[in-house]
C-alpha cells in the first residue's frame, strides 16, 4: 500500500482547487392569486445552465434547461435551484442529455439540484439523462423539500458511458424530505472506485438506471400496488413500481441503454400511474 503524502498548503497561491467554473441557475414559480396562472419572477440562467421559458398548459409554467456549453467538466461546480411557491405549478425539462466529461484539471465535478415545493404547489422535474463519459468524475446531489400538501413528479436517469465506452465515476444522492421527515434517501455509486456496482446485486451489466418518483399526498394516502415491469429474459430491462413508506410511488428500473430505460419509466407512468411525462 502506498500512502499519498498531502502537499502542504501554500497560502495565497494554490487556494483555488481547480480552474473549473461555478454556476448556479435559479427559478422561482409564483401563482398569480388563488388558482391563477403561474409566473416566473426569477428565471436566472448561469454559465452553461441557460434557461428558456416555453409554452405551458393551463396554469402551469414550463422551463427548459438548455446546455449552453459542454458541462460538467472535472472541477466544475454547477447547481440549479428551483422553488415552486404556494399553489404554483412548475414543469422543468431539458433540451438534451447532460454529459459528464473529464476536465483538463484532475478532480471531480459537482452538480447540485435543490428543489423546494410549497403547500398546494406541484413541481415536475423531468430532465434528460445524465451520461457519465469515460474518465469523468461527477458527484451529484438532488435535494427536495416538500411541504405537507406539495406534489412532485421527479425523473432521474443515469447512463453509464457513451456508446461502447466504459463509464466514468458517478456518485449521486437523491434525498426527498417531506413535512420535516425524510421520505426517500438513495445514493448510487457507479464506475471506478465504487466496489461491487457491476454485480447481480446492483446493476449486473445494465448500463442505464433510473427512478421516477411521484408524491401525491391525497392520491397515495393508500399505498399504490406493487407492479413488476419488463422481463429480465428478453433484454428489455426490468423494474418495479412500489409504494414508499409515505404517500408516494417510486419506479426503479435498470436497462441495457437509455432508450429502453425510458421505455420502462414511460410505460409505468402511463399504464400504472396514469400520468403523462
Amino acid at each position: 500500500m502506498t500512502l499519498a503524502v498531502p502537499a502542504p498548503a501554500r497560502p495565497g497561491t494554490a487556494a483555488l482547487p481547480t480552474a473549473g467554473l461555478r454556476a448556479t441557475a435559479r427559478i422561482t414559480a409564483r401563482a398569480d392569486g388563488v388558482g391563477g396562472a403561474t409566473r416566473l419572477p426569477v428565471l436566472d440562467g448561469d454559465g452553461p445552465l441557460a434557461l428558456r421559458r416555453v409554452r405551458g398548459y393551463g396554469h402551469q409554467a414550463r422551463v427548459c434547461v438548455v446546455g449552453a456549453m459542454s458541462a460538467p467538466l472535472g472541477g466544475d461546480r454547477l447547481a440549479i435551484e428551483a422553488v415552486a411557491e404556494e399553489g404554483a405549478a412548475l414543469h422543468i425539462t431539458a433540451a438534451a442529455a447532460t454529459v459528464a466529461l473529464p476536465g483538463r484539471n484532475a478532480g471531480h465535478a459537482t452538480y447540485d439540484v435543490r428543489l423546494t415545493v410549497a403547500d398546494g404547489a406541484r413541481l415536475e422535474w423531468l430532465p434528460e439523462p445524465l451520461i457519465s463519459a469515460a474518465g469523468s468524475d461527477l458527484r451529484m446531489t438532488t435535494t427536495v423539500e416538500l411541504a405537507p400538501t406539495a406534489r412532485l413528479v421527479l425523473r432521474e436517469e443515469q447512463v453509464l458511458g457513451r456508446t461502447g465506452e466504459p463509464t466514468g465515476a458517478l456518485r449521486s444522492r437523491l434525498t426527498v424530505r417531506r413535512a420535516g421527515r425524510t421520505l426517500l434517501d438513495q445514493e448510487t455509486a457507479y464506475g471506478p472506485g465504487a466496489p461491487g456496482w457491476d454485480t447481480a446485486a446492483v446493476l449486473d451489466g445494465h448500463r442505464a438506471t433510473g427512478q421516477l418518483l411521484v408524491v401525491e399526498p391525497e392520491r397515495y394516502a393508500e399505498p399504490v400496488g406493487v407492479r413488476l415491469l419488463g422481463e429480465a429474459a428478453d433484454g428489455a430491462g426490468q423494474g418495479v413500481l412500489a409504494p414508499l413508506a409515505g404517500p408516494a410511488a417510486l419506479v426503479t428500473a435498470v436497462a441495457p441503454d437509455a432508450l429502453r430505460l425510458r421505455h420502462l419509466l414511460d410505460e409505468a407512468a402511463r399504464s400504472h400511474l396514469q400520468i403523462g411525462l
Binding site: 399526498p217 394516502a221 393508500e222 399505498p223 409504494p243 413508506a245 409515505g246 404517500p247
Partner: peptide
C-alpha cells in the same frame, strides 16, 4: 404519515 405499520 406512515403507511407500513399503521396497525397497533
Amino acid at each position: 404519515m406512515h403507511l407500513d405499520h399503521q396497525d397497533t
